[in-house]
Amino acid sequence: MKRLLLAYVACSAPLAAQSVRGRLEGRVPPASIPVLDSLVQVAAHEHLPTEPLLQKAIEGGAKRVSGERIVKAVVLNLGQLRRGQALLRRAGDTPPATPGEVVTVVWALKRGVPDSVVEQVVAALPGEPRSSALHAIADLVVHRIPADSAAGLILEAVRQGVRGPRLLDVSGAAVQELQRGRTHAEALALVRRELPNVPPPPPPARATVLRARRPGGGAPQVPER
């Protein structure tokens, strides 16, 4: 199986193999670098995002995980990316999906949003960023609100013109109602009644912004949203 994988990679166009190995060197056990490099090449060949795989490998190295476990985690992530891409295709997204869209779907699935609900959201927001909508639904799902009901609230907010990070305020308002002791149904109904007006979070104070500094060391990675 491993030989087949390597042969497959050798036939495909290599993805700046040097840069991949360069980023992994010194960050993961050296013996695992060739396999990790191959996995990244496979992802590139399948038009899957490669950055999450590199990040996962580097994360494993930083956490001093063994090379074997790093490879396992990267293989697992490759599978998740494939699942995300397939889901986007099923939901009617025109291929190829952007790396950000695939990663967004993977996050939603990992946070417990069922495939069917993710597909529903993808189909309801064609050509629009779905990151905030999926995170908002996941925020409700982790508070044990049924995924269908959570998706219902968020998609209703979308229908009423709420977009982008403001959708997180919708789920935030529902979670607040739960914390005040309301039942799931009561919380969702209350927030639904308030739509599209949900209180925004307070902007950061000027003093806070002035205190902010940029991370030193490694260059910040632009996230795939």
């Binding site: 994360e59 930083a62 500094r213």
Partner: peptide
């Protein structure tokens, strides 16, 4: 920060055990 320890160090100036830091980051997840 590419999972590099030390590039964003939090501070506990008043030694009360509460560590804080404010950082500019790219928007996103």
């Amino acid at each position: 920060n590419d999972w590099r320890a030390g590039s964003i160090a939090l501070e506990d100036r008043d030694h009360d055990g509460v560590w804080r830091g404010v950082v500019v980051l790219p928007a996103g997840t």
